[in-house]
Write a protein that binds this DNA or RNA. Structure first.
Lengths: 140, 140
DNA sequence: CTTGTATTTAACCAGAAGGTTATTTAACTG
DNA sequence: CAGTTAAATAACCTTCTGGTTAAATACAAG
C-alpha cells in the first residue's frame, strides 16, 4: 500500500491521521477487536482495516488471532522512537522561557533609554547603516 | 497544497518526510537561507520551497526577510505539541519493564504454587519492591 | 456442509503529495 | 535603467492516500 520508507517516516506518517490517533488512544486502554475499533467511526470496515494496516506497517500495533477476531495491540516501541527523535529538539522549547526573559530584559533597557532619547528614535529608521549592517537587531 | 486538517496532523505529516526532518535538523543549529537549506539535497529549489511551505503550514518554521533572502527559523512550539501528544503514551513504554517484571513474578508464583502449596507468601513479600516509586523521569 | 460472523482483499475513484521545468516576483547592484 | 541573485509561483506529471462497494477468506456453530 505505502512506500517502503524508513521506520521513523512511516511512524510519523501513521500518526498524521486523526482516525489513526483515535485508534491508538483506544488501544492504549487495552487490546481489542477490529469491529470495536471501527465502531466510533462512520467509515466502512475496509477503511478502518486500511488504517490498521498503516499502523501495523509503522510497527505501532500488532495483531493476533482469537477465533474470527483479530485483536489489535498497541506497540509502544515505535512511539518511543518518535519520542527519541523529538528528544533532540527538546532544548529548543525548554529554553524558550529563558530567552523570553532575555528579551524582556532587553526591552526594559531599551525603554529606559528611550525615555531620555525620545526624539532620535524615529530618525534611526531613516539613517540606514550601510551594507549588511542589519540594525534590525536582536539577531542572536 | 496540503489539507487544512488540524495542527497536530499537519505537524506529524510534516515530520513524516526525511528531507523535512533534515531541514529541521539544520535549522536547529540556527536560522539560515533557503539556498543553504537546499544545498545538501539534489532536488530542485521549488521542491525545497514546497517542503518549507509544508513546514511553515505546520507551524514548525517561520520566515523573515533579509534583502533577497528569506531566512527560516525553527519554531519549537509545534514540536512541543507533538511531544505533548506522545506524553500521554509515555507510560506505555516506560512501564514496559515493570510490567514484564510483574508478569515474571506472577509466573514464578504460579509455578511454585503448582509445585508445592506451601509457604511462598513470605518470599513474594520479600521479592516485591513495593510501590511504583521508580520515578523514571522523562528526561534522559 | 451450510450459515453466520469477523475481517481482508480487489477494483475503483478523487484528491493530495512530491517532484519536475519554465516563468515571475522581489530586492540589491552597477 | 538593465542585470543578477534569491525565492516563489504556475503548470504539469506520477504516485500515494483515504475512501467507497462488492467479493473473498477464515473460523465457529448448527
Amino acid at each position: 500500500m505505502q512506500l517502503a520508507t524508513d521506520r521513523l517516516s512511516a511512524t510519523f506518517q501513521a500518526l498524521a491521521d486523526p482516525t489513526r490517533r483515535a485508534i491508538l488512544a483506544r488501544l492504549a486502554l487495552g487490546e481489542t477487536s477490529v469491529s470495536e475499533l471501527a465502531s466510533p467511526f462512520k467509515m466502512s470496515m475496509p477503511a478502518v482495516s486500511k488504517h490498521l494496516k498503516v499502523l501495523e506497517h509503522a510497527g505501532l500495533i500488532s495483531r493476533s488471532r482469537d477465533a474470527q477476531m483479530r485483536p489489535c495491540k498497541i506497540e509502544a516501541q515505535a512511539l518511543k522512537q518518535a519520542d527519541d527523535w523529538l528528544e533532540e529538539y527538546r532544548r529548543l522549547w525548554e529554553q524558550r522561557l529563558d530567552r523570553l526573559e532575555d528579551y524582556l530584559r532587553a526591552v526594559q533597557i531599551q525603554a529606559k533609554t528611550a525615555q531620555t532619547e525620545t526624539a532620535q528614535a524615529e530618525e534611526t529608521k531613516a539613517a540606514k547603516p550601510k551594507g549588511k549592517g542589519k540594525s534590525r537587531g536582536r539577531k542572536k
